[in-house]
């Protein structure tokens, strides 16, 4: 287990068990700044192998920001600065020597807003496998596209119009297309930023099913505003508040018996 550095009295600490017995990713003393704005305050947390961890908290508390640290998507924002350490297995992903291209193939991401490429549905899904050389020929590629779309629960709806632009789909379909695009690369860790916010209950159920299936082989971090969803799909839950990681624990415990008053206020609907 990696130690957490303590900084005098200003370090508020996190309630609950931040560590995991079999960690896939280990975050230690992560701070994120947007220019002068301190968006993530000294967050330390483990993400276990084959576990689904839910990140909840009021809007603007830094869930997306933290999630984007895990595959260094924050590098693309000029004003953004990240300090601390994040390990994927034994590699510090913020090490200078780390190449972000293979990292992002390993740690895939589904964004909060659906962002399909302005290309065909087929090309959207096939793009990742193609650039990483995961498919050798057209047959394999077709197969990857089909299984990915099936997993994302989109196949039935689009199988007859794979050549149509992905941007022509409905919002919820676009989001599922983005999920298919991400899992087509076969990443080891999947980061999902509110993947179901634009989906109807049926599509949501499909995605939740998918998450459950994927858990056998992958590690998943999911940001959600739906307490029910967090309770349904996750094993552990992390509660963020104004950039602080307030509490981490078993999902069941967080939702039935939260230790921190802020967590309790949030999940009982008194706040947020």
């Amino acid at each position: 287990m990696r130690p957490v550095k303590k900084y005098g009295s200003e370090h508020r600490g996190t309630v609950g068990v931040i560590t995991s017995e079999n960690p896939r990713m280990t975050c230690r003393n992560v701070n994120v700044y947007y220019g002068d704005k301190h968006a993530i305050l000294d967050v330390s947390i483990d993400i276990g192998r084959n576990e689904v961890i839910a990140m909840i908290g009021p809007s603007g508390c830094g869930k997306s920001t933290f999630l984007r640290c895990l595959n260094r998507m924050n590098d693309t924002i000029d004003s953004c600065r990240v300090t601390g350490e994040i390990f994927l297995d034994d590699q510090n992903i913020y090490d200078k020597k780390i190449d972000v291209v293979p990292l992002r193939a390993q740690v895939g991401m589904v964004f909060q807003k659906p962002n399909p490429f302005p290309k065909s549905i087929y090309d959207n899904v096939a793009y990742g496998p193609k650039i990483h050389g995961l498919v050798q020929n057209k047959v394999e590629q077709d197969e990857v596209v089909e299984t990915s779309l099936k997993k994302a629960g989109l196949w039935e709806e689009v199988k007859d119009r794979l050549a149509h632009p992905g941007t022509g789909l409905s919002g919820g379909q676009q989001q599922r297309l983005c999920i298919a695009r991400t899992i087509a690369v076969n990443p080891e860790v999947i980061l999902m930023d509110e993947p179901c916010s634009a989906l109807d209950p049926i599509a949501t159920a499909k995605i939740e099913e998918l998450i459950d299936e994927l858990r056998a082989h992958y590690t998943i971090a999911i940001v959600t505003h739906s307490m029910q969803q967090a309770a349904r799909v996750s094993q552990r839950t992390a509660y963020f508040h104004l950039g602080d990681l307030i509490e981490v624990g078993e999902t069941k415990q967080i939702f039935t018996n939260p230790s921190h008053r802020l967590t309790e206020d949030y999940i009982t609907g008194r706040f947020g």
Binding site: R104, Y127, V185
Partner: peptide, 27 residues
């Protein structure tokens, strides 16, 4: 070109050059 397109490409593991050539430049 909307930044979300760039993020989508980078997020899937495209290199910067691939992002530019495959997605940004055509747009």
């Amino acid at each position: 070109v909307p930044p979300s397109i760039r993020e989508a490409a980078l997020g899937i593991g495209a290199s910067k050059m691939q992002m530019v050539n495959h997605h940004v430049l055509p747009l």
